[in-house]
Design a protein around this nucleic acid. Sequence first.
DNA 1: CAGATTGTTCATAAAATAATGAACAGCCAG
DNA 2: CTGGCTGTTCATTATTTTATGAACAATCTG
Lengths: 160, 160
Amino acid sequence: MQSALSELEKEVVDVFVRIAGALSLPRSVGELYGVLFISPQPMCIDDLMRKLKISKGSTSQGLKILRSFGAVNSVYVAGDRRDFFTAEAELRRIVSGFVNEQVRPHLDSGQARIARITSLLEEDSSENKEFIAERIERLQGWQKRAGALLPFASNFMKPD
Amino acid sequence: MQSALSELEKEVVDVFVRIAGALSLPRSVGELYGVLFISPQPMCIDDLMRKLKISKGSTSQGLKILRSFGAVNSVYVAGDRRDFFTAEAELRRIVSGFVNEQVRPHLDSGQARIARITSLLEEDSSENKEFIAERIERLQGWQKRAGALLPFASNFMKPD
DNA sequence: CAGATTGTTCATAAAATAATGAACAGCCAG
DNA sequence: CTGGCTGTTCATTATTTTATGAACAATCTG
């Protein structure tokens, strides 16, 4: 296992670094997934640190995040005490993990907040109450739509 | 037009600040949209600065971003030299603007990068070539799927 | 045209986010 | 139990991102 990224590996890692950025995840998370994604063998923390030249802390933290939504799988390697990992390669699983862990909670707290807003609005008595009420209802509709889109998006990834 | 945020306004702004965060947009962009969203009247830069207590630079910059994907509309107010704005309230328009301006370009450059990777792979002659080839193909499939999902997501917002 | 008024830009400051690495906790092997 | 690995945590440092505000350009107004 050579400890430098080949040109090809660098490109692949770069793809995932950009994806990570789009998802508001740390750069290192994208790097880690990228390296695992094109590695035929499972890798341990030490391998990843050496390949990417990042610290042990970042590596551990990054893997924790990846595991949190199932983007990475642990693999047992006989005769080695260390933990090894591979990239989860089924898009559907990653998407649904991500949705459940990183997106749904936000939607839920948004739901709660809108409920609070509705009750604030009742106490309110400005001349614009009607307009504001319409806006809040609209916002609620958006929320609902977003919630409906998520499971659909997961299914959309079905065959992969 | 009072120059402080009511409790209700604060809550609404907060909702959009969180959404902005999820979309990797500056906090101020969420604040601006939020205030416009619950404002019955069009607002000018000065109004927004005062309401949100943010600088003129942030306000101008934030509105520029919002305009870039059609989240905000310019309104002419008779007898006033200043520019006035309202929040675009049709979700479908905002989504499709956002997709076209902020998402599609990333997908496209990703496409280009994958093409480059494919050519790098041809020069490559490791024993793992086959495995890597499979992964790159898979990645390409993901890319394609993402591209297909976007127009669908836009349509999903249809009635709003 | 001269003087205001309005909006944009951009160098700098401030704030938020991520990475580092040393300290620590757990665990196995002898 | 002791010593050596392995992985995690977290206070600090580094980096990146965002906000600020003064300088500027553009546009009206009288």
